[in-house]
Amino acid sequence: MKKYTDTGKNDTRSGFGAGLTELGRTNPNVVALCADLVGSLKMQDFIDENPERFFQVGIAEANMMGIAAGLTIGGKIPFTGTFANFSTGRVYDQIRQSIAYSGKNVKICASHAGLTLGEDGATHQILEDIGLMKMLPGMTVINPCDYNQTKAATIAIAEYDGPVYLRFGRPKVANFTPADQKFEIGKAILLNEGKDVTIIATGHLVWEALQAAEQLEEKGISAEVINIHTIKPLDEAAILASVGKTGCVVTAEEHNILGGLGESVARTLTHNHPAPQEFVATMDTFGESGTPEQLMEKYGLNAAAIVKASEKVIKRK
């Protein structure tokens, strides 16, 4: 199978920070807002270079979303920064009315998504955000997989006119996508061709899917691996082409089984090409404190879980 190399572990939130810094230099309309989490969101470089284009709103996320909506009136492209939990559920109605329904060009940038936030525990580990955001009409939902892709996605969404939810995480993870890869919203990336099973992964689970494919290869199973960085709009053509070939699919995400990528894939298959599917996701549960690795192991979100799910789904063909 195609080899992918980790060029050095890095956090996706730093990819966001680097992308935002680049936008600060290249796009004078880009402005940034933060609700008292500048360090966590890696926004300091942007602030240092563009102090007049940064708005520190304090611990007041609802106000931040409204200010962001207002900044678009006058041609600005606001990027809001806070944790995923406080970027979505906490301010859902503000996003719904002032941003989504109003069609405002706001980029909601959300760090520390999912279990890998780790020790802070379930109050901060949102596993429902993809579902919340993809249900909003007109909202684009993106969950890149590593530092390079998060940086590229951050830059790409500034060029797109409309509300976007960009989800990324806290821990340092493998950085394996090419630094020069152009990010195309809504375009799946085929990472490995295979014929026995399709593994569709998003975010931190993409690297795990590649590890799983290597382990499956050793067992004589050929796995196709697709990186779905954009959950909405979903690249249905890429999914259908792959599952049409392999006849079964495993979806993998750091999110609740309800409302996540897996359900979007299931809906696509049900409409077009019903096929067996297994879900690697959290099973309608809250998280808990622990290290990211411990949590991903306990809640079944790693390469081993994807291997197991792949073997199971192939038997169901």
């Binding site: 609802a62 207002g70 006058g74 009315q97």
Partner: peptide
């Protein structure tokens, strides 16, 4: 009309954003 309103309490934040944009512009 420049913003949806009805769900209460959101308009002042939006006005602040628009006021900030005016200053930037």
């Amino acid at each position: 009309v420049r913003i949806a309103s009805g769900s209460l309490g959101q308009g002042l934040s939006v006005a602040l954003g628009a006021a900030n944009a005016k200053k930037l512009n």
